[in-house]
Computed example of a mutant assay.
Amino acid sequence: MKKLTALLMGTAMVLSLAACGGSASSAASSEAASSEAASSEETSEAAAEETTDEAAGEVTTVNAGKLTMSTNAAFPPYEMTTDSGDFEGIDIEVAGAIAEKLGLELQVDDMDFDAALLAAQSGKSDMVMAGVTVTDERQKVMDFSDTYAEGIQSIIVPEDSDIASADDLAGKIIGTQRGTTGYIYCTDDFGEDSVVAYDDGLTAVQALNNGQVDAVVIDNAPAKEFVAANPGLKILDAAYAQEDYAIGVAKGNTELLNAINGALEELQADGTLQSIVDKYIKAE
């Protein structure tokens, strides 16, 4: 409403000037202002592109011309392997978009989750993306980008289970993926003897199906994928924990971190980031 009022007032002023015999002068001023605004917009866009190009030019990567991403491609819909052996998912596409912004080619290295974290920490990869949550412990050994997605830790149980909430996990055997926040939370809350760590979420869910564990704690997005593929399992309504996902890089690698954050900011502003998330996670 305020914008409409301002527009009407502006129109009235132009008409008033025309009635006073200032038509030619007003038109010239309007054209000059329009030209100046267009020039300013072009300058702003050019400056933004120049900033991205400069950031890309300053970045030193593990492999020249490439942005190497370590991940665990068994975490749908963030990273997964297709039948043809290619990688796809939210993290894969976001990483590809970042690489493009930086003028680099994306290289994906698939490995266990723990190894993916260590690769980034030790500089064997440029960054780690695998639905990684920022924790105090991880911040001691690596640096993190701005948040690019949100996650929920969920509990998967058999449909006939007597487990109805996180409190009911006490005294039960819980399956998790090794090195994840789900493993950390569960060992902190229920003790290491109550938690079994598996190499990936799929193996943990298979153990649940086989009766080797009573529940599985894992991120909500992959939990939905696993439950959909395994009749007889369900996700509890109450979330175990909520957290933010970020990109991890080696401690002190400020130039790369700044370049990644700059690219993420642009991808957020132009809607690319949200469109990638929406492609894999449908609104409920």
Rank of each mutant, 00 (worst) to 15 (best):
V94Y: 03
R178C: 04
I90R: 11
A130N: 14
K172P: 14
T254A: 08
E265T: 08
T135M: 10
T176M: 06
S70D: 15
I152A: 06
L7N: 09
S25K: 06
S26A: 11
Y198G: 09
E265A: 15
G252R: 06
I152R: 00
A19V: 13
D193T: 00
D110Q: 07
K140M: 04
V62N: 11
G248W: 15
A99Y: 14
S25N: 03
T181L: 10
A283K: 08
G252F: 04
M127D: 14
F75N: 07
D86E: 15
I163Q: 06
F144A: 05
P158I: 00
D143V: 01
L17D: 05
S275G: 02
P76K: 05
Y183N: 07
E105N: 11
V196L: 03
S34W: 09
A164I: 07
I174C: 03
I174W: 04
A37R: 03
A28F: 07
A32T: 03
T71Y: 14
G123C: 09
V249T: 14
I235T: 02
D189L: 13
A164K: 12
E45T: 13
D270L: 12
P231M: 03
A33I: 14
D200M: 01
T272P: 01
D160P: 01
L117D: 07
A32G: 13
G22C: 00
T147C: 14
N253Y: 08
L118Y: 10
D136V: 04
D83G: 13
A74W: 02
R178Y: 11
C186G: 09
A250R: 06
D168R: 07
S122T: 12
E266W: 02
I218W: 09
D189T: 14
E137N: 08
N72W: 13
E88Q: 15
A73S: 14
V14T: 15
D244L: 10
E42H: 07
D109Q: 12
S125P: 07
V134C: 06
L17F: 07
E243H: 06
T71P: 00
F226G: 01
L118F: 12
E192V: 07
I260C: 00
I281D: 01
A73Y: 14
E284N: 07
A24T: 00
L169Y: 13
S39V: 00
D126L: 14
L273T: 11
E41H: 10
L256V: 07
Q107L: 14
Y198D: 01
Q177D: 07
L264D: 10
A197G: 10
E42Y: 02
A28P: 01
L233N: 10
K224S: 12
A283Q: 15
T176K: 02
Q242P: 02
T147N: 11
A229V: 14
V62T: 12
G10Y: 08
G182A: 06
D193G: 05
L264T: 11
G85P: 11
D219I: 02
E150K: 08
A27K: 12
L104C: 09
S23Q: 09
D189Y: 05
M129V: 15
G201E: 03
V196T: 10
I90H: 06
D189S: 03
